[in-house]
Design a protein around this nucleic acid. Sequence first.
RNA 1: GUCCCCAUCGUCUAGUCAGGUCCAGGACACCGGGCUUUCAAUCCGGCAACAGGGGUUCAAAUCCCCUUGGGGACGCCA
Length: 466
Amino acid sequence: MTQGVVTRFPPSPTGYLHLGGARTALFNWLFARKHKGKFILRIEDTDRERSTEEYARDIIESLKWLGIDWDEGPYFQSQRFHIYQGYIERLLEAGNAYYCYCTQEELERKRQEAMERGLKPKYDLTCREKDLPEKAGAVVRLKSPLSGVTTFRDLVRGVITVPNEELDDLVLRRSDGTPTYHLAVVADDIELGVTHIIRGDDHLNNTPRQIAIYRALGLQIPHYAHVPMILGPDKKRLSKRHGATSVMAYKEMGYLPMALLNGLVRIGWSYGDQEKFTLPELIEKFSLEGIGKSPGVFNQEKILDLNGVYIRESDEEYLLKELIPFLEEIGIRDIEREGLIKAIRTLKPRSKTLREMAEGCRMYFERPFVHDRELLKRFLTPEVISILHRLRERLSAQKSWDIQGLEDCFKGFLDEGKIKLKVIAQPLRVILTNRTASPGLFEVMEVLGKDETLRRIDISLLGEGI
RNA sequence: GUCCCCAUCGUCUAGUCAGGUCCAGGACACCGGGCUUUCAAUCCGGCAACAGGGGUUCAAAUCCCCUUGGGGACGCCA
């Protein structure tokens, strides 16, 4: 199995790449990388009504952002109709497919009736044995086995058996001449030499139908691995109504791709108790055996936490590069690099997303900086103001403006005046940041620099009429 | 309705295939505490689950059956 593994990810561009699709892509990609095989991207746009180029672009962009690269493709099924036509003809010639004249209205009516009578709605085989000639507007159907069972071994589910009465003569070519999904997937998977089909288990029921096509073609079936679905908090299949579900939405919220990847991979797959993986580790440790059978609810909080972990572990250079778009979005630009690096260092342990980190930068870099007078008033008692005046003098004489130097400076000042840091910490914090919660005071002062620090103290004390 | 699949803390899961080491482990969330200039981070501690019922067995979260619950499929969508 290690030799010659070929997997593929075949999204249909009828929507943005969502979390479920991304995880499926990830599993296929990991499996291929682990076995030194090939991973193919194929865009399934046979439904020209609903497919758009914009979605196709989003899918490609999302995969790139996640770092999931492909060795072949993207193939577009809409450009491969001639291939599918060849397969349809093969089936027709072998007598394993036939033309059907039934109209969609008729079929819909029959489906309704069957449902009402409590039967499984399926094609009633009206045209199956008529041996009708080709005709404009006719569809081509597969002659599926009518009795017996179809059994296959799924790499995560085990042996699956379905009675063939459950299958019906599925359409291979529509009345407009375009191939349907079932035919196109099978044809492409054969053409591209796909060995392992790893997909969502919403396709489990489709598998026997597709197997029927392989059999009609006289070909061997590939390996199948159906992975459980990702559900929303209401245990329904994850969809737009559950909020942010597109990959790009996570990028925009300030998630790091590795955090999303790591969060996604742990839904439905595990490696003992390990929660965090590097990419090489994932490639090394990933296996189909580690995939569970039951569907998993998407846990946004856990991914948020993971994102915090990755932010904390990332170096400032990397974070800066990723942070810039978020800063620009809120109007913070042209800040010198050293200052930003220092700011990021202070914000790292308290930011769960890049967006949050950018927000944190406001207190350092947003101009003009305007105090909230009400807030100030609450903290500036006469006693505090008098201490701050003296502190201001001391600070203006301070030479080494770094965390250590400032800490020493404060220590000397507080000891001499027998003042507790607690007394002036919060007032100073409000003066410097306009907030009651912030990184440590010395860190803040270092990022602000001497001039800005003194300036903020001055304007706040001045404003109080002193 | 019919068929297929699934079932461990609120959530993701380990353990299930090869039954005893599991009065069930880890993570997120939540609660309490330490550290502390605030908020975080960090450290320590706590809450919390084998869906129910029958078997098999000396022994079952683990094997079998039923019930219940959940998901999916049943398109000239993919």
